[in-house]
Structures are given as structure tokens and as C-alpha cells.
Design a protein around this nucleic acid. Structure first.
Lengths: 191, 191, 191, 191
DNA sequence: TATGAATGAGCCTTCATTCAT
DNA sequence: TATGAATGAAGGCTCATTCAT
């Protein structure tokens, strides 16, 4: 996953992969018919991991959108520390829109994406949102803010060993940020 | 730029490049020592284009942040229609985080990025922002919203011929969006 | 033998061999140091089979050349139906002139070839041949005709299951052919 | 052709081919898309050579079968000394029944084979053959004898430099052989 | 004896780069 | 300046052979 994430499908070198994995060239092609099959296996594996470790833990009951997102972020961090490669890998696969993805993987990727979206957006109590602005737009603005925050955070953490970080101050800052988001987008009584 | 944008540095084929350019293989390596030098030249060229056609036209006088961003968007579209390849090219270079970028290009890329940021953020009249929220955070939230909006728009336009589009309805929607941003993040009197 | 006969030495795959044989890869190389040794063993085995089942049954007493050949053909068919692979295998080994044959196998192959020739040609009553033609040449012409006939027959039978064929009509045609050969090459009184 | 003739399509090594040809690996694949295309080109080239240098020179007018064959043999030797590889190459391609032959080559191979057969067998004056034996069989026996003779000759010449041989004694022996064939298979008056 | 996972040399092919013209 | 044929290192993959169990 490391190699594919770093260089994309085509430029990933099986030579490097076996070197990093500490195995021989032969055994790679003993288990996987070719480079593509290895790649698709990894995509499948990564999707399964994310389903089990992330999507299945999302709380669909929470009616408050921002609260729900908060819990989702906590779940995600747990999964991330378990296997950070998986997220990096899938993100680059998705962003590069790798042409090698077959229908199967593409469908699975889409269905998981839709499922996680549904779990984040379904049955939200929109009566919490302020009423002077189109509600669809409020969703988008909150989401953009959350994603922007997330990206900025990730960029700052890049290259650090995630297993050795004390996340407490990060969480505190995040919670403060969520309060601001509520102040901006929720009804005043919410305060 | 087309070839590099479409396939990234390594997968770009010099064969395709000379074919598209209608020149011989020999002449490519007569003018450019190697593929990397060609790539770096193009990055340099693209950055110069963006400087001249975009950054230099940004209005630093406008004190209202959102108004300034609005003008910047108009300037950007003008540059984009002049040479869309440049933007595509630089965007993929930046997103793929191409390893071939040398210190020079990276510095120039950064300095232009900083310059355009400065022109967007310097001397903003922050007294327009609502006062119950940290001003730095307001900046970020507005920026994230603007970028999220932009990305969504780009994704929707992907594959279309930009020269044949009537942008008027897009602008109208954008202006409505900017008004909402103001309502959320500016002082109430602003309305 | 099947695999070697079908694809020649080099293209024969040890993977296929163990699969067809229903044994593991390890055990093949436990009993045979390498592919070549297996091949040479099979050549040796096949030669022994042909010695015991064919050459040793040739009738050296029959003085009439064509009659002797006729009996030899009957003996050959018997051996062939016992193990057709052996003949296919040796034939392709011989025709492909496999470079892997070592001196041993080559000598054995030659000595068996010479032995069977001797048993076919020794102590023939050449007084039966017509006298207006060189006797050595008569031998050769008869042999070429017999071999040509044989090859044509084999080509026609290719792909058919030899165990399910009724050979009677084939034998009848063959006997008619032998009579013609005699008419052409033997003294007139022979008729 | 040398390499393909010696080892068959699959075992022929492009490494050896470029080594023997004294060119680089790259240039082989610059002119031929892949190994198969090189092979098919050679087949095509060889067939064209044989058409121009052999088939087109066959004399269809000669009514006497053996005389016609005699002339054909002379034509063949001329072509053979011009380029012996071609015959070796095509012979192994045909005998190994190379699976890589595409429909085109296979059709061409067949049509040339049929054409040369036609030129040898059409409009033969069969009234020259003896009448006490089936005429179809006479054809076959004569052909088998001619082919047997040819093979024996080739086997004896193997490895020798064909360009330095004085063929006169070989031709004399061949002509004697043809006379014998006539004595055996033609009407007595023929003498 | 028997297994099958593991190895690495060698295969065909691609492609940035060089060079004779 | 300009061409495109020629080069060779590196890529993905195969397969006889080895080795731990």
C-alpha cells in the first residue's frame, strides 16, 4: 500500500514492493497473478478494513449533525491509528481515479462511500439549523469547514509517527472548532 | 503540459509529447537536457503565466474579504479561458506532489502561493467580521467554504469544453453563495 | 511423456507434469535431480520399452523382406496399443533432435535403431528382388515406400483414440499395398 | 531464422537473436512490435522468397512426372544455395506446426503448398505409367521414393557449407536414381 | 517420503536518452 | 537546427529448483 500510495499504480515498482516486503519476486507472483491483481486485492482489503473499523462504528442515532460528525471523527482516529496506510492508500486511489480499478472495486468503493455518507447525513434533525439560510447549503458549508479543518490537521501531522502522538490537545482544539460551527450555523437558542 | 497533466511526470511519454508537439525526438533533447528539465521548464513557464495573468491582476485595495475574493474569481476565470492547460497542469503537479520538483520550482511555487495569499488576505478590514468568533478562524472557515464551493463546481464542469459555456448562471449562483457567507460571518449590520 | 511429447523439452512445464501426474513439485525433484534427469530417464525408459515390446519380437528368420516388414508392423501395433505415449514421445524426441540428449541416450538410441534395422535387413533373401536394378537401391525404395505409407496413415489417424479403432480395414489396405510393392520390386515369377 | 529454426518460436530467445544479428535489444522492438510480429514477418518473408525463387520457376508444361520433378529439384537447389536458412526455417515452422501462426500466414503457407503441389502434379501424362497398378498409388510411391531420396541426401549434407560443394556427382547419382524410378513405374516401352 | 511456499535467473518489452547524419 | 534509428537499463512476469516442515 505504501508503494502504491506513494507512486500510483503504474509507477509502483514490484521490485520495490518485494524489497519493502522482504520477500522474493517469485512469491509475489505466486500469490497474485499479476501486479493488477495485487492492487485490486489491496483495494478490497482496504475497503473491508474501513467498513469494519470505521463505517460499522458510525452512530446513526445522534440527531445533531455536528455531534454525529464529532463521534465519527473519534471513530476514524481509532481506525487510523490501527492502520494508517489503509487511509492513505484509498485516498490516493480515489484521488488519482486509478484506471486499473475494475467494476467490482469501483462499485464497492462507491457503495461504501454512499453508505458512510448516508450514516452521516440521514435523519439529521435540521430544526437545529438556523432558518434564514437554505438548509442544503448549511450542510455543505458545515461539511466544507469540517473537511478543510481535517485537511489542515493532516497536513500538519504529515510525516509524524501517529502512534506516539498525544492527541488530547488536538481534540480540545477540535471541540472548540465545533462549537464555533454551531454558533455560526445553528439557531441561537442552541448556545 | 497536456501529457504531463493527463498522466503525471513519470507516465508522461516523450514519444507522445513529440507526437502531439509535431517535432522530432532529437529536437526535444536538443533543447532540453532530459525529461526532467522539460518538466521543470514547463512548471516555470506555467508559474510565470499565472503570475502575469492572475496574481498581478489581484486587487489589493478592496477591504472587504469576500468582495476581494469575488474579484479574484473573475480574474481567475479570464486567465483560465486564456490557457486552461496551465491551470490543469499546475494543479496536477501540486496534487500529485511530483517528486521531480527541485528546490527552485518548489520555492517559486511557494512564493507565488504566498504572494497570492498575501494579496487575498492583507489589509482586510476585519471590522466587518462578526466579533463573537476568533477572527483567524473566520478567515479559515470562509476560505474553506470558498474552496469547497470551487471544487464542487470544478468537479461538475469536468470534461466540458470551457470555451463554449455560458457562465452567467454560474456567476449568479456564486454571488448568492457569497451573500450567504457574509450573512454567516459578517456583522449583522452588513445586511 | 505426454507433456514432453506435446511441447518439447524446454516448453514442457514441470508444473504441468506434476499436475498431470498427481504428485507434488517437491517429490519430482526428490527423485530426479532436475528436469533434464527426468527427461533422460524417460528416454531411457521408453527405449527399454521399445526394446522389450518391439525389437525383441522382430522375426529375423523370415527371408522375404516385405513379409518380414509386414510381421514387424503387426508387432509394432501391438506395442503401440500397449503404450502409445512411448512412441509419440520418442518420435518427437528424435524429430526435434532435442539438444538435451546426452551421449548415453544418444548411443542407446542409435544402437537400438541399428539393432532394429539389422533385424529388418539381415539375411534377407535378395534373390527375390528383380535383378535389373541395384539391390541396395531396391532396399531403399521399398523402405521409403513403407515409411511414406506409414506416415500418411499416422497423419490420418492423428487425434483419434487408437484403442477404439477397428484396424481390420487398415490391415487389408496395407496388405494390398505390400502386394503392389512386390509386383514392382520382386522378380516376375513371384506373382 | 536461424534461432527460430533451431529452437522453435517459444524457445527462441530475443537475446540470442539480437546477439547473432549484432544489434541492440531496443532496435528489435523498434522495428517489430513484439517477438510474434518478428516471427510472422520472417514467415512472410520466407514464403515470398520461396514463391519467387522456387514456385514461380516450376515448369508446368513437362508432361513426364519424373522429368518435371527433376527440373523442380534443380530449381530448388538454386534457391537453396541462395538462402538455405529460408528452407530450414519454413520446414521447422511447418513441422512444429507453430501455434503462433495467424490465419494470414497459415493461409499463405497452405496456398503456396497447394500451388507447388499443383505445379508438380497437374496435367501429368499418366499414360506413361505402367498399367497393371493403380495410378494414384504409382504417384504416391514415386513421391515417397523421391522424398526419401531427398531426405537421405539432406541428412548426409547436414552441417556442410552448401556454397562450397561441387554438386555434379550428386546430380549424376540423382539422375541414375530417376532412371530406376522410371524402370520400376513406367511402361516398358519407355526404355 | 512428501508437500508447496519461496527463490532468483532469465524472459519479453518499454522508454528516456544518445548519436550519426 | 533537425531527424529518427540505435542503445541499454529497468520493468513485469515465468519457471526450474530449493528448502523448511
Amino acid at each position: 500500500m505504501d508503494e502504491f500510495a506513494a507512486k500510483g499504480y503504474k509507477n509502483a515498482s514490484t521490485n520495490n514492493i518485494v524489497k519493502k516486503a522482504g520477500v522474493s519476486k517469485g512469491i509475489l507472483f505466486y500469490y497474485f497473478k499479476n501486479k493488477k491483481e495485487l492492487f485490486l486485492f489491496l483495494v478490497d482489503y482496504a475497503l473491508d478494513f474501513i467498513k469494519k473499523e470505521h463505517i460499522d462504528h458510525l452512530d446513526e442515532e445522534e440527531p445533531d449533525f455536528i455531534e454525529r460528525y464529532k463521534k465519527a471523527a473519534q471513530v476514524k482516529l481509532t481506525a487510523y491509528t490501527k492502520n494508517p496506510h489503509v487511509f492513505n492508500f484509498l485516498a490516493t486511489v480515489y484521488l488519482n481515479n486509478e484506471a486499473e480499478l475494475d467494476k467490482n472495486s469501483r462499485d464497492k468503493l462507491n457503495s461504501y462511500y454512499l453508505e458512510s455518507r448516508a450514516k452521516l447525513y440521514k435523519n439529521i434533525d435540521t430544526s437545529l439549523f438556523r432558518e434564514d439560510i437554505d438548509q442544503k447549503l448549511i450542510y455543505r458549508i458545515i461539511t466544507w469547514a469540517l473537511e478543510g479543518y481535517q485537511q489542515e490537521l493532516m497536513a500538519g501531522l504529515k510525516g509524524k509517527d501517529m502512534t506516539k502522538i498525544n492527541f488530547d490537545p488536538y481534540w480540545e482544539d477540535f471541540y472548540r472548532f465545533l462549537k464555533v460551527l454551531k454558533k455560526l450555523n445553528y439557531k441561537a437558542e442552541e448556545e
